[in-house]
Amino acid sequence: MKNLKNTLFLVFAISMLGCYSVNAQSKYIDKKAKIVFEASEKLFEEVKAQTESATAIFDSETNQIASLALVKGFRFKNSLMQEHFNENYIESDTYPKATFKGKLIDFDASELSESPSQVSVDGKMKLHGKEKDIRTDLSIYKKDGSIVMEGGFKVKPEDFDISIPKIVRNKIAKEVLVHINFNLIKK
């Protein structure tokens, strides 16, 4: 009986170790991911912000990708715009994070080359306490041992229950263009 227990424990321990080492080898991380969003309308002042300190994690074993941006990390040219964005629209004190969790479809990291290939990604974006399904194409390639992912998608403020006051409605585009640039380094 004791023997069986020991064997079971050993099997358990080895499988745990196996899981761990596989995970450790297939993780790619970008701690300084770039995300830009723009909702500019022609003739009006540019509505655009970017962060260079978002986080992105990609697991080449499961093709899962996760990203997190702190909303307060987005910086605008105009400081008043940044203030209104944080306080009135996105309410970053209550909802400090924007996240994306998803999966690359039909992707094999071992076949990746230096020339970009188009890969679909399917996932959920969470912002302002609301979730939305996102499906888009990313351009992915290898660069000096790291994996680069670039791409964009469009979202609407109302997808995330963000209401734009009438007075500024015609100065802000109905669709917000989000652009990402991840440079994922193997960990």
């Binding site: 701690k31 300190s53 986080t55 997190l68 702190l70 990390g73 994070k97």
Partner: peptide
């Protein structure tokens, strides 16, 4: 202080 990144479990400062 920008906030707490719970993916990496680090505090971010810019």
């Amino acid at each position: 202080c920008v906030g707490f990144d719970d993916l990496l479990e680090i505090v971010k400062i810019d």
